[in-house]
Design a protein around this nucleic acid. Structure first.
Lengths: 337, 337
DNA sequence: TTGTACGCGTTATCAG
DNA sequence: CTGATAACGCGTACAA
């Protein structure tokens, strides 16, 4: 039984139909070089008639270029669903990539086998470059990128990848400033719900917190969790209360964490900000959704996406000014502290 | 100035290095056919030595297969960021696609030009199939899919695309059942915050609402918005209150809308569920986050993603049993009504 | 202005 | 078991 699926028309078919050579067809298809008006119309008609559509596998092969940029998001399920910053980064990246006439393809890695598949996708020449968000230090994807020297950029600041530029924020300074501001409201016993200490962002936020507290720092008052999640906030706050029922200030490592903390504070009968002042980080959708609205630091997520894309594009055009960038953050002071 | 970027090694190079032919190399690379143990080790060594990595453009060209499946998400910015269902659908799709050893590439269309680019990406043979989420009836992407007969499946039920199977839910029945339940709590003046009436989902939810109300239906009590957004809920509820201050029951077309409505109800001094009963739709992250937690209908988002992927994969393996599927929903009754 | 011919890197066929 | 060799579909010098 023969397949009923009509095989796609090729340049050859178009040429035959139009009574010209393949070279001429190719020229009008790519709008380059000289071609007579007459030939052009005949070819355009032929294209429509046979329903020609370009075969990119062939085109990529000969041009050594795919016009596609990968966007790799490597997060635990739940976090991927919760974190609106990733969406903003994605949209920012997409905007500049599209502007440069490339196609953004996002690759989600959600398991070990995903990591392996995405890695080989990246090394396999399906894309001309990639932006990687929240990769870990030891990461199959990052390894692949480095090994095949794929033009790339990180969003966030993974340690130990000096060959790949990144765009990040100064987490430490931001955390310090925010904590100082919290302290300025007169809080005496302030704790921190730290997250992702295995990542630069998490570790730096804790450092900034320590900076602000100075001699007053008490490590009993920091409880850590691997994830920047709502759950981490709920559980972490409970633990913090257990250790020190008298806390009157809390710095949560992210808004999601803060939202979780808020829940626990509420159910423990404490009022925010009256009994305890609470601050978050990210200015994500969580911040405005909470009651009271969260005081937090705004991370320019869309700009970070744009910057990362620009970094990749620069490498593609062989520019030499590709250096990591640190974008400024901004404190957004609302009602939770 | 010559480019310092080392050109990638090819099968040819490996063959030369190992002192065998290209055919033999290809055979060990793909682990198919007979090859002597001796040749195998020599080739494997050579692969490592020259740092060979497969060129997929070439491979795709000859195999007429990319092992990639597109996931097209076509939503307004804000909604894409807000709606956790999309994330769940994505993860579900990714799971089965990965299981089948394909790579999922998600394409976000966020503007007219995005739609054009994604369309040509799809027609261009970069992927073997695609799942489309929340496409509109008149949609460049859907047109492309249909024209090139790309194996595909919709999540949701776009009208006028009989050639493409879809996976959906019975919005009308779900809405009717939910509304009846709301009515069962004794509400007398119940209104609806409708959304996306230009889509099947939105239109059907309204129909279900009408079904339940029967003769009691009063069109003054339905206010519509193009989007399933938080904002739509805030504004829509305000409008509804303006039209009928005495409403004591509200069916919001989605949880995000319900969350917005809750905000307006709160600021208008009305208690939920005491003064007015509120129900949503989707059982998204919003539902549990609200106070009180939303009564709503659960849409099996991850399952829908899985089903859509399965539909595409079936077409790829030329199976004939590819028919649209309707997945069951479930009412989740919590505290908001 | 147009046609010819070669190369892109693989896989697949088919004799040896 | 292995090695030539022919596709795959397109871009592009180069010759005409």
């Amino acid at each position: 039984m023969t397949s009923p699926r009509r095989v796609r028309a090729t340049v050859h078919d178009v040429a035959a139909r139009a009574g010209v050579s393949r070279g001429t067809v190719s020229r009008v298809l790519n709008g380059v070089g000289y071609v007579s008006a007459e030939a052009r119309v005949r070819i355009e008609a032929a294209v429509a008639e046979v329903g020609y559509v370009r075969n990119n596998a062939a085109r990529n092969l000969v041009m050594r270029k795919t016009w596609a940029i990968g966007f790799v998001v490597h997060e635990p399920h739940q976090l991927f669903l919760e974190d609106p910053n990733i969406g903003a980064i994605l949209l920012g990246t997409n905007a500049v990539v599209a502007e440069a006439d490339h196609q953004l393809v996002v690759l989600v890695v959600d398991s070990e086998s995903d990591a392996a598949r995405v890695s080989s996708y990246l090394r396999g020449g399906f894309v001309d470059g990639a932006v990687l968000v929240s990769a870990r230090s030891h990461d199959a994807v990052a390894d692949a990128v480095e090994e095949v020297r794929l033009p790339a950029a990180f969003v966030g600041h993974p340690e130990g990848r000096p060959s790949v530029p990144f765009v990040g924020i100064d987490n430490r300074t931001a955390a310090r400033t925010l904590t100082q501001r919290l302290l300025g409201t007169g809080r005496r016993r302030v704790g921190m719900l730290a997250s992702a200490l295995d990542r630069d962002s998490g570790a730096d936020r804790l450092e900034g917190f320590k900076d602000a507290l100075g001699a007053r720092f008490d490590e009993r008052l920091v409880v850590a969790d691997p994830l920047y999640s709502y759950r981490a906030g709920v559980d972490g706050m409970a633990e913090l209360l257990r250790r020190e029922p008298g806390v009157d200030g809390v710095f949560a490592a992210s808004d999601a964490v803060a939202a979780g903390a808020l829940e626990t504070l509420r159910s423990s009968g404490r009022a925010v900000p009256d009994d305890v002042g609470l601050v978050g980080f990210d200015d994500s959708a969580w911040a405005l959704r909470c009651h009271p609205a969260l005081s937090t630091v705004r991370q320019p997520a869309a700009d970070m996406g744009r910057a990362a894309a620009t970094l990749v594009l620069k490498q593609l055009s062989d520019r030499t000014d590709v250096t990591s960038v640190t974008l400024p953050t901004e404190i957004v002071w609302r009602d939770s502290a």
